[in-house]
């Protein structure tokens, strides 16, 4: 039996937006290869802030964060893009580039990685077809509905087959059927080896999949065992 690689490890990490008070304190948790966690907590508890630290948009103001075994607080700036390329993020506010088509938005991680268009064209088209946007590949985000934009964002997060998938309220703008399909996709990708963290306040969703939960309350992260039924 081979030891699982640690994908995320927080060691006494904290995050403060101002000197007066820490938004997140004493974060200590580990996520291994192929593990799945829900991240729950009330609005404003710090779910997005925790995800931001993981996808390297913010630095912990104290403590350490290890990603794929690398200490990000010690990592040189030039090493960060390589770490980010191993992470697929579905942002809560989608963060699509409005001047690019749906196809180009999804292809973005491949373009910045220097992959030739011939190598990713099929993958991008297939992903867009899968999320039901095969007919809207040339549409730009302002012409897409909220749900469609969310599906483009989802496709963009998955196109590079990341080792770690982070999703911030990924089902917030889609109908229940699509929501279920998206969650099933995360579970399938998780079975294929990707570590997944899904931030949500949809307790029904959390209970339906029966995956372990990280709960944020009062600026601290606590662990809960798998809840509810199971998928």
């Amino acid at each position: 039996m081979t030891a699982k690689q640690q994908i995320i490890r927080f060691e006494s990490a904290g995050l403060a937006y101002s000197e007066a008070e820490e938004t997140l304190s004493d974060i200590n948790f580990t996520l291994g290869e192929g593990e799945f966690r829900f991240l729950t907590g009330p609005s404003g508890a710090g779910k997005t802030s925790l995800l931001k630290m993981i996808y390297l948009a913010m630095k912990p103001t104290r403590g350490r964060l290890f990603l794929f075994g690398e200490d990000t607080s010690e990592a040189p700036r030039d090493a960060l893009p390589m770490l980010r390329r191993r992470i697929g993020v579905v942002f809560q506010e989608f963060r699509l580039l409005e001047h690019l088509t749906a196809f180009d938005n999804v292809a973005l991680p491949m373009k910045v990685a220097g992959v030739n268009v011939n190598q990713y064209r099929e993958d991008v088209s297939e992903l867009l077809n899968w999320v039901g946007l095969g007919e809207r590949m040339d549409a730009k985000p302002p012409t897409l509905s909220g749900g469609e934009q969310q599906r483009v964002a989802l496709a963009r997060a998955l196109v590079s087959k990341p080792d770690l998938i982070l999703a911030d309220e990924p089902t917030g703008n889609v109908d229940p059927a699509m929501s279920e399909r998206i969650m099933k996709l995360f579970v399938e990708l998780n079975k294929l080896g990707a570590a997944v963290v899904v931030a949500t306040h949809d307790l029904h969703l959390v209970q339906s999949l029966g995956k372990p939960v990280l709960r944020i309350a009062d600026g601290r992260v606590t662990r809960s065992p798998a809840a509810g039924g199971g998928a």
Partner: peptide, 23 residues
């Protein structure tokens, strides 16, 4: 990932769209 969420596309149509994009 062979399942289509919207489920309304035919394979022929998809290949036409891909061919246009490639061109």
């Amino acid at each position: 990932m062979s399942e289509t969420v919207a489920g309304s596309e035919t394979p022929e149509r998809r290949s036409t769209v891909r061919a246009k994009r490639g061109l």
